[in-house]
Amino acid sequence: MPTICSPLSGRVAAHCSSPDDSVSTGDPLLIVESMKMEIPVEAEAAGTVVRYLVEVGAEVTEGQPVVELR
């Protein structure tokens, strides 16, 4: 299963889809807030969201897995 990782450290501000949702390449999966900016974490390939590995409000680090796709 492909795993999407956070490109930066910050706090998860929102999930943009739900498990079992289909996503296309470039679709936002979640929003990371860092330094008062909101940065979307996008799908790197088309697929289906299996699960989120982080909850809204959680702190994430650069390179941390955040979403599993299939």
Rank of each mutant, 00 (worst) to 15 (best):
G26F: 00
A46D: 13
V49L: 07
V67F: 07
P28I: 07
P65Q: 03
E55W: 00
E62T: 14
D21L: 07
V32H: 02
M37H: 00
S24G: 13
V50L: 09
V32L: 08
L69F: 11
T48E: 13
L69I: 05
M35A: 08
V41E: 00
S22A: 15
C5E: 12
M35R: 03
S17N: 09
A45R: 14
E68M: 11
R51M: 12
S22C: 07
R51V: 10
R70Y: 12
H15C: 06
P65E: 09
S6W: 07
V66L: 04
S34E: 10
K36C: 12
T61R: 13
V54S: 04
S34W: 03
E33T: 02
L8V: 12
V67K: 04
A14R: 15
G26R: 01
S18K: 15
S9K: 05
A14M: 11
P40W: 05
I4P: 09
G63R: 05
V67I: 13
K36F: 12
S6L: 07
S34D: 09
A45W: 02
V49N: 04
E62Y: 01
G47S: 12
A46K: 11
A58M: 13
E42V: 14
R70P: 01
E44P: 04
G47W: 12
I4D: 08
T48I: 14
S9V: 03
G57Y: 10
